[in-house]
Design a protein around this nucleic acid. Structure first.
Length: 193
DNA sequence: GCCAACGTTGGC
DNA sequence: GCCAACGTTGGC
């Protein structure tokens, strides 16, 4: 499944009493915890062992209808457009790491809206993080094309060589480096590979 | 619809 | 803390 949105909670997590709170999560919620080290020094402190900060993201969701416990999990970019303010919460994420990434997001950062588990998987558009529709990609960037670049970059070097979409395939919320993000955006103006 | 990869759970 | 069983993700 893919992260679905909409009022639902992961039943499994709920059953298990797990942490989730899944309910709403605004993506931009506070940051998690970095533990600040309690030690001494006075200010400045939030330091080095805090998680690296990421500024760009990719979030997966399923644009085609699929029922899970009687509930349709469909939520594609066209559905996001439809929401009041073109804004939605993003819930249904059960994976811990994905949820942690969501807590690191800050309002206003950009995220790709990725369509998963569908006829044509790929990047459909851009959102601002909390989570508001921004725009469609000038052209849909299919997974198959990203994969070609990934393979090529892995062999010869290039910005997509470590892209999480391939190295951590099942993560539904993932960070991108600025280089990865910009490279993908640049594909809009190139012919499909 | 299949199923490989991988994440999560829970017994020990 | 290990690891087998189980469940989910998501491309194909």
């Amino acid at each position: 499944m893919a992260p679905k949105k909409r009022p639902r909670m992961s039943k499994k997590a709920a059953d298990a009493g797990k942490a989730d709170d899944g309910g709403k999560v605004s993506a931009a919620e506070a940051s998690v915890g970095g533990k600040r080290k309690a030690t001494g020094k006075s200010k400045e402190s939030v330091k080095a062992d805090d998680p690296p900060e990421h500024s760009h993201w990719l979030m997966k969701s399923e644009p085609e209808s699929r029922f899970e416990n009687g509930i349709d999990v469909k939520f594609g970019i066209e559905d996001l457009k439809t929401m009041l303010d073109q804004t939605s919460c993003w819930d249904g994420v059960r994976n811990f790491q994905a949820r942690n990434f969501m807590r690191q997001m800050k309002k206003g950062q950009l995220a790709f809206f990725y369509h998963s588990n569908c006829k044509e998987p790929g990047i459909a558009g851009l959102m601002k993080v909390d989570v508001q529709y921004q725009r469609m990609m000038k052209r849909f960037i299919p997974l198959s094309e990203l994969k070609k670049y990934h393979l090529q970059h892995r062999a010869q070097g290039g910005p997509l060589k470590d892209m999480a979409l391939f190295t951590r395939a099942r993560l539904s919320v993932q960070p991108l480096t600025t280089e990865e993000f910009e490279f993908v955006v640049s594909l809009e103006d190139k012919a499909p590979l």
